[in-house]
């Protein structure tokens, strides 16, 4: 058994980006199969156009339509591409100075091997048939002399002011060793806290570092699955990813024997009847659904005992 519990997690969102006028002009150009540079205050032409002039710091407002050919000024061979790159098999990234521009542009060059690319090589754009107004609308290929013969045109393409950029990253998440013992306990239907060797408080879940003392919690304490609602809110609002139909209660439950409350759901009672101090008991999912997760506990439900006195839990608010 590994020291810690681990699981994959994907962090993914399709970001909506408003481009502003300069990047918008550049991306609109790409949609039209045209490379647009920006003229800087010192007379140079930069591709892509910077939003603000590096010298005068003013917004760049003068644009220059350039040919879709250029020269490789540096390159590298991507022997092991990662997800999202312009090619799934090995390819080249290059710094390409577009004809008429003074600064290089980072882009991909589609060649079969590193022997097919060199500094000083002439390249031209190979445009996608369907263009959205993004840097992925083209890749560069060696210029065979028939420049732009097959270059598409779409001069009246709609202006680009907004792009969607998907960002999806895969991570392997690990719990700390202390948390891992807690989650493994749950898989056996046990709630395992740990006591801090210094302040003697019982933490559930246990901690890699007691937040008061900065030392790991250590001494294992098996806790009851009965506790007291310290405070709560009634969720009436629907939101992204919600699993239960509102209204319902999200509460802090202080398990008997613990010194810190857990956040969990209170069900089997109308939301308006939930009270601070109410005594509740864990309702476990059927055993065959258990995993190494706090979600083995479906929710908490009232025990029917009298409410706890405010003084017994007020220091947990």
């Amino acid at each position: 058994m590994s020291r810690t519990l681990q699981a994959p997690v994907t962090v993914a969102f399709d970001y909506t980006r408003s481009t502003g006028p300069v990047i918008g002009r550049f991306l609109t150009g790409l949609k039209q199969a045209t490379i647009v540079g920006g003229r800087l205050s010192d007379g140079r032409v930069a591709v892509p156009p910077p939003e603000y002039d590096p010298v005068s710091h003013q917004a760049v407002t003068e644009f220059v339509e350039l040919p879709d050919t250029g020269t490789v000024t540096s390159w590298t061979w991507v022997s092991e591409p990662v997800a999202g790159q312009p090619s799934e098999s090995a390819f080249a990234y290059a710094l390409i100075t577009i004809d008429g521009a003074d600064t290089p542009w980072l882009h991909a060059v589609d060649v079969a091997s590193p022997d097919d690319i060199s500094t000083g090589m002439r390249v031209r754009a190979r445009w996608a048939a369907e263009r959205t107004g993004a840097v992925t609308d083209l890749v560069f290929v060696p210029d065979d002399g028939t420049t732009s013969a097959d270059r598409p045109t779409e001069p009246d393409a709609e202006e680009v002011s907004r792009i969607i950029t998907p960002v999806s990253l895969d991570y392997r998440y690990a719990a700390s060793p202390e948390e891992s013992s807690f989650f493994r306990g749950l898989a056996e239907g046990r709630i395992l806290g740990q006591r801090c060797p210094k302040c003697r408080k019982v933490y559930v879940p246990p901690r890699g570092a007691c937040p008061t003392d900065g030392v790991p919690t250590s001494e294992e304490v098996e806790l009851s699955d009965v506790g007291t609602v310290t405070t709560f809110c009634v969720v009436n609002v629907p939101f992204m990813g919600q699993k239960i139909k509102p209204p319902y209660v999200s509460a802090y439950v202080l398990l008997d024997g613990a010194d810190i409350a857990l956040q969990h759901l209170i069900l089997e009672i109308p939301a308006e009847e939930v009270r601070m101090g109410m005594r509740v008991k864990a309702v476990w999912k059927p055993r065959e659904e258990w995993g190494t997760s706090i979600e083995n506990i479906s929710h908490f439900a009232p025990t029917g005992e009298p409410d706890a006195d405010f003084d017994t839990y007020k220091h947990h608010l």
């Binding site: 997690v9 719990a175 709560f232 699993k243 999200s250 969990h264 601070m276 997760s293 706090i294």
Partner: peptide, 26 residues
């Protein structure tokens, strides 16, 4: 962003602070 093994709070943005407001009122 979901954290494996951990219970989603099931409460949304204000759900984190609302219980503490209740505590204040009490």
């Amino acid at each position: 962003v979901p954290v494996p093994f951990v219970m989603p709070v099931h409460a949304g943005a204000g759900g984190y602070f609302a219980p503490h407001v209740r505590s204040y009122i009490r």
